[in-house]
Amino acid sequence: MGFKLLSKLLVYLTASIMAIASPLAFSVDSSGEYPTVSEIPVGEVRLYQIADGVWSHIATQSFDGAVYPSNGLIVRDGDELLLIDTAWGAKNTAALLAEIEKQIGLPVTRAVSTHFHDDRVGGVDVLRAAGVATYASPSTRRLAEVEGNEIPTHSLEGLSSSGDAVRFGPVELFYPGAAHSTDNLIVYVPSASVLYGGCAIYELSRTSAGNVADADLAEWPTSIERIQQHYPEAQFVIPGHGLPGGLDLLKHTTNVVKAHTNRSVVE
């Protein structure tokens, strides 16, 4: 069995187990497998329904001669939608809004960016022009300005110390501490036991640490421990890039980060 097929099978099995364990909360999309990078042309966006009122959005972007996937989250909030992270750029984010209108038909009224990198804030200006209120932590807003990236308009308070959590509509926002970046936030959907790890969490097929220019490698494993301790009931975990899975993604990420750190020390 090929690795790609095995990865998709694991996603399907995880979703099936969740649907059985929580039949009222989960209505997993039966329309197909989780979209992969090879299936999404740059400039297009796919939506994948995880649970009743919960979707991931998947886009792709060219970077350094390669094409990478990027995940975000959409959560229903009454007759409105909360968006977590842009679709990595203005063109993708405009396509995301169009796809949401086509498939869901509810307005996106608020959006949260989970850290300051372009795959999370690139497209904020498109959201703002569409009347979406954009939010991020003060740290993310400051770092985005320093980096020359787009800056969300509103500040999220109460997320300055490791372990801080605040309720934001249908989700809980959690600051686990520094990891992929010093400002990275985690998003949890309690009604569906869905954990969105953003770039602080890796997919299972990833074996290298990737972009760690703004990471705190020493603190990252401790931050992941905080996530595990705060959300032990999480059933569906979405990484910032690639295929979702279960809580095993947290341990896998820790292993990859520690291996990278150990290699760096040896070198």
Rank of each mutant, 00 (worst) to 15 (best):
Val42Gly: 12
Ser162Asp: 14
Asn92Gln: 12
Gly177Ala: 01
Pro232Arg: 11
Arg120Phe: 02
Val28Cys: 07
Ala94Arg: 13
Gly122Leu: 14
Gly245Tyr: 03
Ile84Ala: 10
Val126Thr: 13
Val257Ala: 07
Ser208Lys: 13
Val256Asn: 05
Leu185Cys: 02
Phe236Met: 15
Val67Gln: 09
Leu82Lys: 00
Val146Cys: 14
Lys4Phe: 06
Glu44Gly: 12
Asn149Lys: 10
Thr261Asn: 14
Glu233Ile: 12
Glu267Pro: 15
Thr253Trp: 00
Glu150Ala: 12
Val189Lys: 01
Ala130Ile: 15
His154Ala: 13
Leu247Arg: 11
Val132Ala: 09
Leu5Cys: 11
Gly169Asp: 04
Pro176Cys: 01
Thr109Ile: 15
Met18Tyr: 15
Val42Asn: 15
Leu217Tyr: 15
Gly169Thr: 03
Ala213Val: 12
Ser181Glu: 01
Ile58Ser: 13
Gly163Ser: 08
Ile100Gln: 03
Pro35Met: 07
Arg120Gly: 13
Glu44Ile: 11
Val45Ile: 15
Arg206Phe: 14
Lys251Thr: 08
Thr36Arg: 09
Gly197Asp: 02
Ala179Gly: 11
Glu172Tyr: 05
Ala94Val: 12
Leu247Ala: 08
Gly210Ala: 14
Thr36Gly: 08
Gly123Glu: 03
Tyr188Val: 05
Ser223Met: 02
Ile50Thr: 09
Thr140Gln: 03
Ala19Pro: 05
Gly78Tyr: 12
Ala165Cys: 11
Glu101Cys: 13
Leu5Lys: 08
Val146Leu: 12
Ile227Ser: 04
Val42Pro: 11
Leu243Ala: 12
Ser139Leu: 12
Ala234Pro: 15
Gln229Ala: 14
Leu83His: 00
Leu243Asn: 13
Ala179Lys: 03
Asp248Pro: 10
Glu157Met: 15
Arg128Lys: 14
Gly43His: 10
Ala213Tyr: 14
Glu33Gly: 08
Ala19Leu: 11
Pro35Gln: 11
Ser264Ala: 14
Ala218Met: 05
Thr86Cys: 07
Phe168Val: 08
Thr140Cys: 03
Ala215Trp: 05
Ser27His: 06
Val45Lys: 03
Trp220Leu: 02
Gly246Asn: 08
Leu204Ala: 08
Trp88Thr: 00
Gly246Cys: 04
Val171Phe: 01
Val124Thr: 06
Ile17Ala: 05
Ala178Leu: 06
Ser191Phe: 08
Ala234Gly: 08
Leu83Tyr: 01
Phe116Trp: 15
Asp214Met: 08
Glu99Lys: 13
Lys258Asn: 10
Tyr196Asp: 01
Lys8Gln: 07
Ile20Ser: 10
Arg226Lys: 12
Glu147Trp: 12
His252Pro: 00
Glu101Tyr: 08
Thr36Trp: 07
Glu219Tyr: 09
Leu5Glu: 07
Ile50Tyr: 06
Asn71Met: 01
Leu250His: 02
Ala59Leu: 13
Thr60Phe: 08
Tyr12Asn: 09
Gly210Ile: 15
Phe116Thr: 03
Gly53Lys: 08
Ala111Met: 14
Gly163Met: 06
Val187Ala: 08
Leu159Thr: 04
Asn92Thr: 15
Ser62Arg: 12
Gly43Pro: 07
Ala215Asn: 13
Ala259Asp: 06
Pro35Trp: 08
Asp248Gln: 15
Tyr202Cys: 04
Gly122Gln: 14
Ala59Gln: 10
Ile224Gln: 00
Ile20Asp: 07
Ile104Lys: 00
